[in-house]
Design a binder for these strands. Sequence first.
DNA 1: CGTGCGATTATCT
DNA 2: GATAATCGCACGC
Length: 221
Amino acid sequence: MEPDGAAADLQGAPWPRALFADPALEVAPRLLGAVVWHGPVGVRLTEVEAYAGGEDPGSHAHRGPTPRAAVMFGPAGHAYVYFSYGMHHCLNVVCGRDGVAGAVLLRAGEVVAGENGARARRDAGRSLTHPARDLARGPARLTQGLGVDLRHNGMDLCAAGATVHVRQGSAPAASRIRTGPRVGVSGPGGDGTAYPWRFWIEGESSVSAYRPGRVVAPRPR
DNA sequence: CGTGCGATTATCT
DNA sequence: GATAATCGCACGC
């Protein structure tokens, strides 16, 4: 971990809203290397996924602006946080024009500041202590490490003084950026390989393990 | 090391 | 009533 003085040097300029206002597919690779902050905790993004609107069957916005997905149709730069599998939170940044659905799911990153706070949340209720690379490895782990939950849904990340916000970080060399199928996305057409909208930085230990979309097995009776 | 499955509840049909 | 943009643990090799 860096001492506090060095952590300040890691803080780049705040991300302007205009960088979120393009389609999610363009914003996603651009976000790799950027740093998400929640108070003292900073996570440098190493893996993200793009989600679009009606034409994207894997998106929550696929069925229109339901109460949950409405944020995805709103202005760029706001947080879309949803509660998943009855116990996990996932954090997205809304992209695209106001009125057009789009978001980038923040899937994984490395903790570059506030490691103790992140670890305290990740270790809570458990007798083991996590290695540094696991503190934000996976979308639900990332929100847990950052301390982000449904209270942050809809928050404007570009507003001055927002507790959750994005700053410039060390962008990876273009040659290290990889793309592939999104994780865990199922539905008609199966495994989601038709939408290779997952982006990650090759060689980063904090990139989450890839698991193909789960096939629904017939239930025994 | 890899694979399989149960947990637990908001959201949508 | 079914499903889910997941995780962590148990088990087998």
